[in-house]
């Protein structure tokens, strides 16, 4: 067990869900909400507390696209690549974000853990295509130029924080 890891958050989340095995997805969601990803340390801990195998929890965590085993940035940029956004040129926008932040298909998060860029299959806002989300904010009718501006703005926000 990892002795340096603070399990108090996990304990609270487990208590919220009454340590119920069948609520594993909800438990993982809450953990992810707190850490912005699923830290590896919690897996053996959850396995013991929930009396289920670590392999099974890993199975659940890797099945759903929404769970991340890698730490994510402060700003998670989700670029919609559903049909409507795709035909309205979402890919150049994605390219621009990656270019601006030095990311690629295999590298989603910047080393300073400020930005994560990922694609999603549909945000359900096709009328606003091409659409992206930064954390909980929606940005509509995006272009590569707007993407560059947005990054600039977000970086300023970070600098002023």
């Amino acid at each position: 067990m990892h002795e340096n890891f603070d399990f108090s958050v996990t304990d609270r989340i487990l208590a919220d869900h009454k340590c119920a095995q069948q609520l594993i997805i909800a438990i993982l969601q809450d953990i992810q909400e707190h850490y912005r990803y699923l830290p590896r340390e919690v897996f053996p801990y959850l396995a013991e507390k929930l009396d289920m195998s670590e392999a099974r929890i890993y199975s659940v965590a890797t099945f759903y696209e929404n769970f991340s085993l890698e730490p994510k940035g402060k700003y998670v940029i989700k670029i919609c690549d559903g049909t409507a956004c795709h035909v309205r040129h979402s890919l150049p926008i994605l390219e621009r974000f990656r270019q601006e932040l030095g990311l690629s298909e295999n590298k989603h998060t910047t080393d300073d853990l400020n930005f994560t860029v990922e694609t999603v299959s549909c945000l359900g806002a096709c009328g606003l295509a091409p659409v992206i989300m930064v954390n909980d904010d929606v940005y509509s009718a995006m272009t590569p130029e707007k993407a560059s501006e947005l990054i600039k703005k977000l970086k300023e926000e970070l600098a002023n924080a």
Partner: peptide, 9 residues
């Protein structure tokens, strides 16, 4: 034992 399970999809 639960050493193995499905992973990914």
């Amino acid at each position: 034992v639960g050493a193995i399970d499905f992973a990914f999809r």
